[in-house]
Design a protein around this nucleic acid. Structure first.
Lengths: 191, 191
DNA sequence: GTCTATACTTTGATAGAC
DNA sequence: GTCTATCAAAGTATAGAC
């Protein structure tokens, strides 16, 4: 078989955490959907649910960063890259019945005040996104400070739009904020 | 005593849902912190946790809307109102050790794909915020369409900033997006 | 080492004493 | 009506068979 048991567990946990959150996902449900024996969790993750959660967060964060890099590489310029990313997010939302949004936002909010180990994992992922985005905009000509501020705003628009689009079951928030985000990048580069 | 048992339960659930989410808050913890007997939950909320959750969501949403109205009433203009709201959010984050952010965002993400009754409650609250904000900007001179788009962007910036600020335990995202939001309003009104 | 069965705790919910 | 005792189910974690 192509995938290992550990990979199946991590793939499944990534999907369930994204849709149901950390607290809402039981380990029994996890192994059932992953087709893995219960003991495998503690074999591969001696630290239990928390260790599994931390690894899932970091793994999901890396994959999502790669998605942005891939889309940016194909876009002709920065405003287009942002526009394409938001459009892709909207498309994915519809295709998955509004379940596949940010891979770690739900968990990030759940653990922010309840589990510092997992909070740190989400913070590290967010910092990696911000750093990558900042580097992208500095390469386009912005100063470090302006590039980081722009990154925080664009990413905040994206995360906020995920919340509204999922709750309202509508792509309107994602489409509208995508246009605003693209315009924000265009103006920042023109200034 | 000034508060009723039902109010104490709702106040406590609002606080716990905001900090720990819906799935992360047990009813036993809730009654313990509210100083209420366990049976009171089912006396006041025959529908159990779900009914309590729905009422908490709608109640928290109304209170937060009133907060925006109050801040807007004191501000000299729309860009200042937005700037003040973000600044107040940053201040509250620090004062509460990054626990008091959006009152329903965590729950909204948790239930979006798992409980349609609660998802609808969060959607209704978000729509009420968007409607109130849209009315505010139309009163300032914008068309309905532009006012709604601006509202979605400002609110998305706010929600996204809450996620990053809580995870990173920093007010930087809230301060930076607050400046961007205020500028966005200023430019929209100038156009 | 892989996997099953079980231990122990906590969950949401209910019945009934007062 | 207010509150306590208890239920069945699900939670995480562990021990041990194979």
């Amino acid at each position: 078989m192509a995938t290992t048991t550990k990979d199946r567990i991590l793939d499944t946990s990534a999907e369930l955490f994204r849709r149901q959150g950390y607290m809402g996902t039981g380990l029994k449900q996890l192994v059932a959907e992953a087709g893995a024996p219960f003991g495998s969790i503690y074999h591969f993750f001696p630290g239990g649910k928390e260790e599994l959660g931390a690894e899932t967060i970091r793994r999901s964060g890396e994959l999502y960063l790669q998605l942005f890099v891939a889309i940016a590489a194909e876009a002709p310029d920065a405003p287009s890259a942002v526009s394409d990313f938001f459009a892709g997010a909207a498309e994915t939302l519809v295709e998955t019945d509004y379940s596949d949004a940010c891979p770690i936002a739900t968990v990030a909010l759940e653990v922010a005040s309840t589990n510092d180990t997992l909070r740190q994992a989400t913070a590290d992922v967010f910092e990696s996104w911000i750093d990558a985005s900042t580097a992208y905009y500095t390469a386009a000509g912005l100063s470090d400070e302006k590039a980081r501020a722009l990154s925080l705003s664009i990413l905040s628009l994206l995360e906020g739009a995920f919340i509204f689009s999922r709750a309202m079951r509508s792509t309107e928030p994602m489409r509208v904020t995508g246009a605003a985000a693209s315009a924000m990048v265009r103006e920042a580069l023109a200034a």
